[in-house]
């Protein structure tokens, strides 16, 4: 082979490599475009549970709270069918222990996992994308031990490979990398804790959803409250359960902070109503939690609790 021939063949080789790359990038884009904007939750059979109902279970025993809560809702069978894949999103974003009241109570989560499995769920995944490293958050929160003992899987979605590019459909939140686990789940249950938050005043259900997004910095860079509301519109949980047994009332979300006990667990399909109830319980005007009115404006739920049926058990 002469020199010119060699150079041109190398050139062709490089060109073909480059083109191969282009092709890959293109397919990626097509895949993204194909992802449906999942603005509504996947439909649940059997007519669906009552949207206008909030169940408030009162007490301290985790198993009992979950059991009587679902009993008042008409049974977990309204959500979880045989063979379903369930994703639960608690809040264990900070490296605190259960007694520090900054993470969802692991025994409550474990009780829910057992309920789901008893209802015939094929698998129950418990996920979060915490601030700190997976071993520290999974261990300190007690979530891993409790969930695994109950038969579920607990893990942390701290790599971009857990996320997929979606069209979020908001005015500020247009596209984002969102949790694949949630997109693929038959049933998605949001399981936040009620606690103080230094920026948004409170964190409950809507704020907890940020743990399903890869780039949270985007929320902070643009408009935090608006993006929280628009995220809630993208993928509504089938059910929101608010752990209001106890939570920190200052220095949130990380703590440590003063702990208040409310001894309640709130169940609702309407995520805005659940958060509204939580804010009221915390002693704040729901309208002061900026993302709640924004979410209500987007038609995501009811902020007037008088229009809801609140059942205390």
């Amino acid at each position: 082979m002469d020199r010119r021939g060699f150079i041109s063949s190398v050139g062709c080789g490089l060109l073909s490599l480059g083109l191969a790359g282009c092709g890959l990038a293109d397919t990626d884009k097509k895949d993204t475009a194909k992802t449906p904007p999942a603005s509504a939750p996947a439909p649940l059979p059997s007519g669906g549970p009552d949207r206008n109902k909030l169940v408030v279970a009162e007490g301290t025993d985790p198993n009992n709270l979950i059991e009587k809560g679902f009993a008042a809702l008409g049974g977990i069978g309204a959500w979880v069918k045989k063979g379903n894949s369930v994703v639960i999103k608690p809040n264990f974003s900070v490296p605190r222990k259960p007694e520090e009241a900054a993470t969802t109570n692991p025994q409550l989560v474990a009780a829910l996992v057992r309920q789901c499995l008893a209802a015939g769920a094929k698998e129950v995944k418990v996920i979060d994308y915490p601030f700190n490293s997976p071993p520290v958050c999974l261990t300190n929160s007690g979530i891993k031990a409790a969930v695994e003992a109950a038969g579920g899987k607990a893990y942390v979605t701290n790599a971009q490979s857990f996320y997929t590019q979606v069209d979020a459909g908001g005015s500020v939140l247009k596209t984002m990398l969102f949790s694949q686990d949630v997109l693929a789940a038959d049933v998605f249950i949001n399981f936040p804790i009620l606690k103080h938050h230094g920026i948004t005043k409170l964190t409950m259900g809507l704020k907890n959803m940020m743990g399903l997004v890869w780039d949270r910095g985007y929320f902070h860079r643009t408009d935090l409250n608006q993006t929280i509301a628009e995220l809630a519109a993208f993928r509504k949980p089938h059910l929101t359960i608010l752990d209001a047994t106890r939570g920190i009332t200052a220095n949130g979300p990380g703590g440590p902070g003063p702990i208040q006990e409310w001894k309640q667990v709130v169940f609702g399909v309407d995520q805005v109503a659940v958060d509204t109830y939580g804010a009221t319980l915390f002693g704040m005007a729901p309208a002061d939690i900026a993302y709640l009115p924004l979410a209500a404006q987007l038609g995501l739920g009811e902020m007037d609790l008088r229009k809801m049926t609140v059942v205390k058990v």
Binding site: F131, G198, I199, H220
Partner: peptide, 28 residues
């Protein structure tokens, strides 16, 4: 800092500080 220069409601540094060494002022 976008909270100081662009008046954004960011404060992510304070949110994630494990020892409460960053606090927001009255304008976050």
């Amino acid at each position: 800092c976008i909270a100081w220069s662009e008046q954004k409601l960011c404060l992510i540094c304070a949110e994630q500080c494990p020892v409460l060494a960053i606090q927001g002022d009255e304008n976050h």
